[in-house]
């Protein structure tokens, strides 16, 4: 199979991204596909709870932040002016750096006329890789207290192999970490629930994906609760609803024990297989 990337995302948190992503990975593996699961929800990765990988290696991920040599600094202020993130301040002749605000663009180093700025590494988290029952497993774990997740998400995505199916478990929302996670995907699955909250956040996610020009479809989780508004919205916007997962208490019970729905309840194998076939189509 050529390299195929499916990103699993949602506007609202707690709709079932990890449930769908991990079960898809498992059924793909059972179907004999070369499959990788990459957890980009680095602030709260939880795919490992269900896939139970054997971690084979762990690598710290650093971003570069500026260090100013005060002996060479002439307090010209060019570095402060180019920094869009207030990571450098200049007070009289005193230069201050705020490494936790730095986005690692390197601009300050480029504009410094005296070469007073060099870079040092600041660890933002780790990427761990392993194997989970035939599924290649990668996740990022953001350092506690760290706000800068996109560089770590980039590091997770660098581990997408050149061939086979890669399933990306994205963080919730529609901000930078999500965009970093779904960018370049061949298909995005938007998970939602049939509630006013689910609908509101689904609309935001749809707007985001339309700007990014990524093909997508919707999975409605706990589909027999709530109301019809999500279905009406998808209908009026001509958005494919690929799957309705019922509000089945047994799925929640399996989840609470850290079990995959398809493992605990074999009848769901078919459900996720048909979802997978619907997305990757003829390639299965």
């Amino acid at each position: 199979m050529d390299r195929t990337i499916i990103a699993v995302a949602s506007g609202k948190g707690g709709t079932g991204k990890t449930t769908v992503a991990t079960n898809l990975a498992r059924v793909a593996s059972i179907q004999g596909l070369e499959v990788s699961y990459l957890d980009c929800d680095v602030e709260e990765p939880n795919g490992h709870i269900f896939l139970k990988p054997r971690i084979e290696n762990s690598a710290p991920i650093c971003v570069s932040v500026p260090v100013v040599d005060e002996g060479k600094c002439t307090a010209c202020g060019k570095c402060k002016e180019i920094c869009q993130y207030s990571a450098i301040a200049l007070l009289g002749k005193t230069i201050l750096t705020f490494p936790n605000l730095c986005h690692d663009c390197g601009g300050c180093m480029l504009v410094c006329p005296t070469g007073a700025i060099t870079e040092t590494g600041r660890e933002v988290g780790v990427v761990e890789e392993g194997i989970a029952d035939g599924v290649r497993f990668v996740h990022g774990k953001l350092r506690i207290g760290e706000a800068m997740s996109p560089p770590l998400i980039r590091a997770v995505r660098k581990r997408i192999p050149d061939s086979g199916l890669s399933i990306i478990d994205a963080p919730p929302g529609t901000s930078c970490p999500v965009i970093q996670s779904v960018r370049g995907a061949d298909y995005v699955l938007l998970i939602t629930e049939p509630t006013p909250f689910g609908l509101n956040d689904l609309k935001l996610a749809v707007e985001m994906l339309r700007v990014l020009k990524l093909p997508f479809g919707v999975v409605v989780n706990r589909a027999d609760m709530g109301d019809e508004a999500v279905f009406n919205y998808c209908d009026s916007e001509s958005i494919d609803v690929l799957l309705r997962i019922p509000d089945d208490r047994r799925i929640a019970e399996a989840y609470s024990r850290g079990q995959l729905a398809t493992q605990a309840l074999p009848e769901y194998n078919e459900v996720f297989e048909s979802l997978l076939k619907g997305i990757v189509g003829v390639q299965l």
């Binding site: 993130y85 207030s86 990571a87 200049l90 007070l91 009289g92 201050l96 705020f98």
Partner: peptide, 14 residues
Amino acid sequence: AAQGAGIQTAQNLA
């Protein structure tokens, strides 16, 4: 501001 509001405000006061 997305971030660094305190730093910028302090610089302005300076």
